[in-house]
């Protein structure tokens, strides 16, 4: 078997490349940005389809509602900014002018989570998935690698309705074969295991996989699942995994409130099944400046910390 070379790439980079492809594939796709096109990578679209790219300036609320207006006229707008501003500053615009009328607007938010790094807490969205998940009609995706991100963007363009796509700043390991299909509302088991299942999303999938390796060295079989679809969540998959493992954890670069961990906890609680479960994420705290690696370690989201927490959860059996 020949091993193809894997490419390390940020999901935001994959977003830009997917948009550039969409420019040729779908005339209805238009892109708006709020003065961050070089960072969000929407500049890749602007380069190939300048007539369908609109800079809204540093005015996110207006940008989202302009997109809503475009959508009423048959366009498929992608709007981008950093997740803090896209989901936070423009929250009520997304609520009332996108989700309430179920308009076909895609919010592609980059620089989510603490791996934004040095810019610090003001720029590290740790609550965006919670905000978006609570909105009726909104689908929420958090891709893990460039393949997953690319196909998530293509799937979002094809889907009729509002979608929030959470993207990262930092280069992520390639986890999938380049043609790996994107299954809407489903999860992907990347590593089977029977002791503890790690439900992860975004950048945390690679950390969870690395944690599983550390655990394997100690004879602990950890399963790792890529929960790239936060909403709709693959409930059947979650139920199936907790039926086959004796403990579970969620791992996300997000607050433990209202994100992936809460979504998994809801499924487990309503299932009636009892097993040790822990939400691994930001423990009701904002981030701060630092290198991404230092921040992951500080907030116990690096592979080693995840492995240690997994062992503590397993000890509760």
């Amino acid at each position: 078997m020949t091993e193809t070379v894997k490419i390390k790439m940020a999901t935001r980079e994959a977003y830009g490349k997917a948009l550039a492809e969409l420019a040729a594939e779908n005339e209805a796709v238009v892109v708006l940005d709020a003065d961050l096109s070089k960072s969000t990578k929407t500049a890749d679209f602007a380069k190939v389809a300048p007539a369908r790219f609109f800079n809204a300036g540093i005015a996110e609320a207006n940008m989202v509602d302009v997109a809503a207006g475009l959508a009423t006229c048959g366009k498929i707008p992608f709007v981008s900014s950093f997740a803090v501003f896209a989901a936070g500053r423009a929250f009520e615009q997304i609520r009332n002018s996108v989700c309430y009328p179920r308009l076909n607007v895609k919010i592609a938010a980059t620089h989510a989570g603490i791996t934004v790094g040095e810019d610090g807490g003001t720029h590290q969205a740790i609550e965006d998935m919670g905000l978006m998940r609570g909105l009726p009609n909104m689908a929420v995706l958090c891709p893990s690698d460039w393949v997953n991100a690319k196909w998530a963007i293509k799937a979002a363009a094809a889907y009729q309705g509002p979608v929030y796509i959470r993207l990262g700043r930092l280069a992520a390991e390639q986890l999938y074969a380049p043609d790996q299909e994107f299954r809407w509302g489903r999860a992907q088991l990347l590593l089977p295991g029977s002791d503890i299942v790690l439900f992860a999303c975004g950048m945390m999938v690679q950390e969870a996989l690395a944690a599983a390796q550390l655990l394997a060295a100690e004879g602990i079989r950890a399963a790792v699942a890529d929960m790239y679809a936060i909403k709709p969540l693959d409930k059947e998959f979650v139920l199936d995994q907790i039926a086959h493992c004796s403990a579970a954890a969620s791992v996300e670069e997000h607050s433990i409130y209202n994100g992936l961990g809460s979504a998994i906890a809801e499924v487990i609680a309503e299932s009636g099944r009892s097993l040790p479960f822990q939400r691994i994420g930001l423990q009701d705290t904002f981030g701060q400046s630092g290198s991404p690696a230092a921040l992951l370690r500080y907030y116990s989201l690096d592979a080693e910390s995840i492995a240690n927490q997994a062992k503590q959860i397993l000890a509760r059996r």
């Binding site: 609109f54 207006n62 509602d65 302009v66 809503a68 207006g69 959508a71 009423t72 006229c73």
Partner: peptide
């Protein structure tokens, strides 16, 4: 803002 989007 929505009207701007329609006009655009």
């Amino acid at each position: 803002s929505v009207a701007c989007g329609m006009a655009l």
